[in-house]
Design a protein around this nucleic acid. Structure first.
Lengths: 109, 109
DNA sequence: TGTCGTACTACATCTGTCGTAGTAATATAT
DNA sequence: ATATATTACTACGACAGATGTAGTACGACA
């Protein structure tokens, strides 16, 4: 069974999260479920990876956090994407296309 | 100017090198030139990255080294791909296709 | 009462890349 | 004759991001 490359994902976890946040503000658990379902169970981000990405990106100004209490009484930390985050996302998409192009010159199908 | 992602490349330097070695045995300097030209100057692997990849892959049994003195009197360390190396390369190609697929679900064009 | 799902945080380890630096030999330019 | 560029490496330490392990806490459900 082939699995996805965590070294490649490494460079795109932030991008994946930003993509989801650009649809709507969200929080850790929800993001993780969405990644899993959108990838059809092919990628399940680790909690530690996810939350450290949130911290990094908030520090970089790509997202901002705010607390909210859900209907069920649970307190959650939500994240919203910023303008800088959207810009970064668009740049990463360009970078991806270039990188993919280069790598595929060395891949045999 | 967009540049390629060294975090993505991170997972595929070994694969790139194995691809080139599967065409013919080679040595550091030549491999580095070939990567540069095949990628049309978009990727220039760092010497340290390249030689540490050689060491890692020899330890893993994906390549074997041998010394040879070139016409110009220079001594070089050549590398040849092994069966295990070819197998690893083919697996990485499969992994790449899967990973690419997943990532592209989160990329907007 | 215990387990499952939700929603996190803390910390230490690992891997591969990268920067910096140094060696040494030949080739080419001044 | 001397300096610079190219070839062909090696050594070492720093760093970033992913991962493993562990722990907290609360509500739902059986």
């Amino acid at each position: 069974m082939v699995e996805i490359s965590s070294d490649v994902i490494r460079g795109y976890n932030d991008t994946i999260i930003l993509y989801l946040l650009s649809e709507a503000p969200s929080y850790g658990y929800e993001i993780s479920k969405k990644i899993r379902s959108l990838s059809e169970d092919k990628y399940m981000i680790k909690e530690t990876t996810l939350y450290s990405a949130f911290n990094r990106m908030e520090k970089n100004g790509y997202i901002v956090s705010y607390s909210e209490t859900a209907e069920n009484g649970k307190k959650r930390t939500y994240y919203r994407i910023t303008e800088a985050g959207s810009k970064y996302y668009r740049e990463k998409c360009e970078e991806w296309n270039l990188t993919k192009d280069v790598i595929e010159r060395f891949i045999r199908r």
